[in-house]
Amino acid sequence: MSRVPFYLKERLEEIHKRMLYEKYETQKLPVWERITLTWIVLFSFWVVITANTSLDNLIIGGIATLIIASFMRDMLMEDVRHRGHLIEKIIYFLLLYAPQYLIIMAFRLIESNMKVAKNVIFMDIKPGIIKIKTDLHSDTGVTILANSITLTPGTLTLDVSKKLGETYLYVHWIYAETLNREKAGEKIKGDIEEWLKRIFW
């Protein structure tokens, strides 16, 4: 793609963006599902924060969060993949995906704490900034992937760039083992990307 002249590049980028947008439109959730998912998240947050289960409080919270969810429906649930019925989606998320992710991240977090302690004691660092490619395209998915990369051992996300419909991440690695893009991507991302591709597009 680097041999393409400069005036063609913008055109190509536009076409790619339009294709991506059309594909995305066919994958978007229906309106009532987005409203319901956002309402569930907001209402559970309301109940936890107010710590009050009287009937008046529940009714007031339900109405207020429904009004907020009806016009904020595109902010939180825009990027969720279109698959299965609503109840099926909620059950899969609560029983399968969330515990899997939590267990993976808990062990990675403990391992990264031990690794930082080892680095502090022995000071065996060889830092480098590596560029890797991801298959995720949505904003929420890339954000969660960047946060997970920051919490895994030895890596820190610097920046995200999107060019020609592909997403690249710049990662500061505290012990740069390889400079090859595919090998570094496999070593850094691990199985988190496979997990995230099931929920976000």
């Binding site: 830092p127 480098g128 900034i129 946060n147 920051t150 996300t157 610097l158």
Partner: peptide
Amino acid sequence: PMISHAIAKGAYKYGIKPKVVVDMY
């Protein structure tokens, strides 16, 4: 982690050169 990589990008744009072996950014 969100604040951490906001500060990392800001420090790079501020002009602090990292001591690294390879800098693809």
